[in-house]
Design a protein around this nucleic acid. Structure first.
Lengths: 215, 215
DNA sequence: TTTGCTGAACCTACACCGTAGATTACGTGG
DNA sequence: CCACGTAATCTACGGTGTAGGTTCAGCAAA
């Protein structure tokens, strides 16, 4: 609010800006997020931000990177077992998604090429390779795992973080089967549910490996 | 461009607007899409659109609905075999995604409650139920199938539709395994690849069914 | 101490956006 | 022939991202 005079240090830095941006998106959502609002939050002129980050796109990149860094920090890397690594990464990813449901669409939409993402993937595929899994299976693993993680979490969180929290409650007359099934879909955000589905995905990977890989 | 005088009919309708919006997003991308640009494209005052569609959010809903309708139209519903239905729906969905790569993020992000989406799901789960599959398996099917479809297609298309089509070509020194695997990931986007992964997902559903369902 | 430079912060300005509210005129039913 | 609903336009407001210029604390060399 009270902006300092020109030339006075405001203690801005890429990291401080990114953290504030994450907090702002968490609070108000992606729609309402903007450079000016972020500047207000930091008690700073909008243009000051541009001295540390090139533009709004780069700002969103920084947000992605910040929450991904959380995952990396929370995942301990003591294990060498690829399935253990995959499980821990997936659970860490899920927890981050629940911590920042309104940031998550950003991650699912943009291709992840940031170092922190690549390091995690490199660790996973290296472990898989050392375990002797067929090359093609290893090559497909990132896409298989994160493709599903993104799709699943996006669907589960879309109700969780929605601006308007009104589940329309599908019409039982026109969609009888869907309505009948609704109670069975009640437990959809639970860890148990997640772990079960994750297990089937990893099980599939192992099946392919056992069969010898390519097809 | 040449706007007519006030009161003169411009032949606008929800459908015509939605079609033009889809074309505009296809051409310029979601970032550049806006009410004013759409109005320009239609040769119409921006506010005229508001007489047919409530606001920008509703406009994007209309876009989603329009492309989903394409899928429904292209998928013939002669079969009663649930696996056949799932396959055809999935392939139709994929083709739509490739036809409108810049619209697709919209579908993956927003929860689908439009009639056209619900009708397709109702058909699928009804067929599965009639085939005698366990209730919980049927209940999980929509999430399993579309969760994966969305995640996978989002990842594959993010390179396809990118505003800047520069694949960064990961550094072979810092990420040796990832770099070594890159050639094996070349064919990502092909129908064959898609069908293979789809097969594993459907195979998983059948496995669960054979084992008796819940767990 | 004085000088001059660097860079981080601010200020101004512009083009654009979504949309609320008022106005206009065509086509139709009475 | 006239009133009216409707579909279009016009005007205006507050908000956005950001290019370009300005200001000034802090520091290094003279």
């Amino acid at each position: 609010m009270a902006r300092r005079a020109q030339g006075t240090a405001a203690g801005l830095s890429r990291e401080r800006i990114a953290d504030a941006a994450v907090a702002l998106v968490d609070r108000d959502g992606l729609e309402r997020f903007g450079v000016r609002r972020l500047a207000d939050e930091l008690g700073v002129d909008p243009m000051s931000i541009y001295h540390h980050i090139k533009g709004k796109a780069a700002l969103l990149d920084a947000v992605s990177e910040a929450v991904l860094a959380e995952v990396a920090a929370a995942t301990d890397d003591t294990s060498r077992d690829w399935e253990e690594i995959a499980r821990r990464t997936a659970h860490g990813y899920r927890e981050m998604a629940y911590r920042h449901p309104r940031v998550f669409p950003l991650l699912a939409t943009r291709a992840q090429t940031s170092p922190v993402a690549l390091i995690a993937l490199e660790r996973l595929v290296t472990a898989m390779r050392e375990a002797g899994l067929p090359e093609q299976v290893v090559a497909d693993a990132p896409m298989t795992l994160f493709g599903f993680l993104n799709g699943y979490l996006l669907a589960v969180l879309s109700g969780e973080s929605g601006e308007d929290t009104g589940t329309p409650a599908i019409d039982a007359d026109t969609y009888p089967t869907m309505a009948a099934l609704a109670p069975l879909q009640a437990g959809y955000g639970s860890v148990a549910e997640f772990d079960r589905i994750l297990g089937t995905v990893l099980g599939r990977v192992q099946d392919r490996a056992a069969r010898g890989g390519t097809r």
